[in-house]
Design a protein around this nucleic acid. Structure first.
Lengths: 115, 115
DNA sequence: ATGCGTTATGTATTTAAAAGAATAACGCAA
DNA sequence: TTGCGTTATTCTTTTAAATACATAACGCAT
């Protein structure tokens, strides 16, 4: 390709669709992990520096599209309420990262045969 | 992951960076192919339904970042001017599509092991 | 019963990206 | 030398997405 012989790299993004609509991607997995960490959608949204509203919608879409919700929520109570991951949510994170690793490895190989 | 057993799929996008900046992606390759087809950035932009301005900037960025320009332009003359691909541009398209095929094949395999 | 911090949700505001409009320069052809 | 269709570029307008703001409901604890 006659590129400047500098830092050439292949970048990629991938995500999982169900019925043509996005179920899971990098941002959503990060959101799930922060919900696990904080036990709260609000705190997760703050750490991700996005509005609570957007985070809440994200979670809603995931839960609606998955066969079984990834996030379990509860309102009121001692700490005002909160959210936690379901087994299905944990499973989704693991499968996403496993796939991510395989893709990363493959893409690294491809760079050699691309230069 | 316990997904609704409907239409589950893995989607992806990839692109080539040089020194951390985008050189080539799906849209840019399509642009190159339409410039080849029409011999004109203006007509290519119209078929892609994007503004001439954006198309022109796209081409400029590619040409600036590649070691050797992908698109050759000329102003004035019988037909007002035009643009054509260089050998390097043609080569870039081919390499992109070759890589795309390999990634497509790999991702298809992964879906089986993901469900 | 009051306060607290969260979920839940509608509406308004801001912001960033893209498009659109306008204009100049170019060089051939009639 | 006038017209044509393109490249080239600036400035304005539109559009879409995200954010901000506001408010209610919830349920435990004091």
């Amino acid at each position: 390709m006659s590129l400047k012989s500098k830092d050439l790299s292949i970048k990629f993004r991938f995500w999982i669709n169900v019925d043509g609509e996005k179920l899971l991607g990098k941002g959503r997995v990060e959101m799930l992990e922060l919900i696990r960490k904080h036990g709260s959608i609000l705190k997760a949204s703050q750490e991700m520096k996005m509005s609570y509203r957007q985070a809440w919608q994200m979670v809603k879409e995931m839960n609606d599209r998955a066969e079984s919700p990834f996030v379990e929520k509860y309102m009121g109570g001692k700490n005002g309420g909160g959210a936690r991951l379901t087994i299905e949510g944990e499973d989704a994170i693991k499968k996403y990262h496993d796939l991510e690793k395989r893709i990363n490895y493959f893409i690294d190989e491809q760079l050699e045969s691309f230069k």
